[in-house]
């Protein structure tokens, strides 16, 4: 047990929690926006994957990490746009649409990768760029906090800013008001001329944009290349985090951090010979339990029934 604490209570561990939380947090914020508009986007995994590859390809051909990032974000938005087009225009079932996006991404990225690099496993032959890490002046010199909070990848800081941005968007802007109204009572929104479809398009595109940033982080920060299926379930963890976070910005961010910690722990505990495969299931187990607790309490609330005295 002592060795466990030795692993956890280090600045290195805290640093790595933020590092692994970043992609989850981006995607979870994306899932949050689309869920608040009443549509559940389960294509996060696939969108992240496509964006990760796009970031690598664009940065390799333009020799600019920033253009690569832009490409990744646009790719994520575009894929979400395709999903939105089919689900909102053609009324494809949103869940099956998400399944299709994931299927498309897992094979399609390998297809493109092979065409461009002749390799189906990774993008080693593409000279892609990585986005920088940043030391924050003043903060970096503070003991404990400095090593934890400073020196992160630029997108990690973006993800933290994104939490506040999404909060502002949802709770303090006209668009946020409309997104929430569409999610809660689409008929009400429609009746005052708010185009439900337009709002849901916007929300889905935003969810794709954020998932795209998460994907870019995977291949231009977390790793410095694209590898096959590199998102490895982070899209699902993000959906789980949003669900556990009860669709609030703060809840989603905190749960993402918690799941990030579980992820970091899985890496750290490998040193202690605790199987990473099992630790890796923790976020999902936590989500099932969370869902269950919520569902049971809801049912209990409904079913408080007094025994009929005459039925004795």
């Amino acid at each position: 047990m002592n060795s466990l604490f030795d692993v956890i209570f280090t600045t290195d561990f805290a640093f790595s929690v933020l590092r692994v939380t970043t992609p989850i947090l981006f995607a979870a914020l994306g899932a949050l926006i689309s869920n608040r508009a009443g549509i559940i986007n389960i294509g996060m995994e696939g969108i992240m994957l496509v964006s990760a590859l796009t970031g690598v390809i664009v940065s390799a051909y333009t020799h600019s990490a920033w253009v690569g990032l832009l490409g990744a974000a646009l790719a994520g938005t575009l894929i979400a746009g395709i999903l939105a087009f089919f689900t909102l225009k053609f009324k494809t079932h949103i869940i099956l649409g998400g399944v299709a996006i994931n299927m498309f991404a897992s094979g399609g990225t390998v297809f493109i990768l092979y065409l461009l690099s002749g390799d189906k496993g990774s993008s080693t032959s593409l000279a892609s760029k990585v986005l920088p890490s940043v030391d924050i002046p003043l903060l970096k010199d503070i003991p404990v906090l400095g090593p934890i909070l400073s020196g992160h990848h630029i997108l990690t800081y973006f993800s933290i800013i994104a939490v506040f941005a999404v909060y502002y968007l949802l709770n303090r802007t006209p668009l946020g008001l409309r997104i929430r109204s569409v999610g809660e009572n689409p008929h009400a929104a429609q009746s005052v001329g708010v185009s439900v479809i337009k709002i849901q398009y916007t929300a889905l595109l935003l969810s794709g944009f954020f998932a795209g940033l998460g994907g870019a982080y995977m291949s231009m920060g977390y790793l410095s290349l694209f590898t096959r299926d590199m998102v490895a379930g982070r899209g699902w963890i993000a959906i789980a985090a949003e669900s556990m976070g009860r669709s609030t910005t703060a809840g989603t961010a905190l749960t993402s951090l918690l799941f990030g910690a579980a992820d970091a722990l899985a890496n750290a505990l490998q040193v202690l010979k605790i199987p990473a495969e099992l630790i890796g299931t923790l976020p999902y187990v936590a989500t099932v339990i969370g869902l269950l607790v919520y569902a049971v309490s809801e049912t209990r609330k409904k079913n408080r029934k007094l025994k009929s005295p005459a039925a004795k």
Partner: peptide, 9 residues
């Protein structure tokens, strides 16, 4: 997988 995605959609 691209074809499958199209079919599902």
């Amino acid at each position: 997988s691209i074809i499958q995605a199209v079919i599902i959609l």
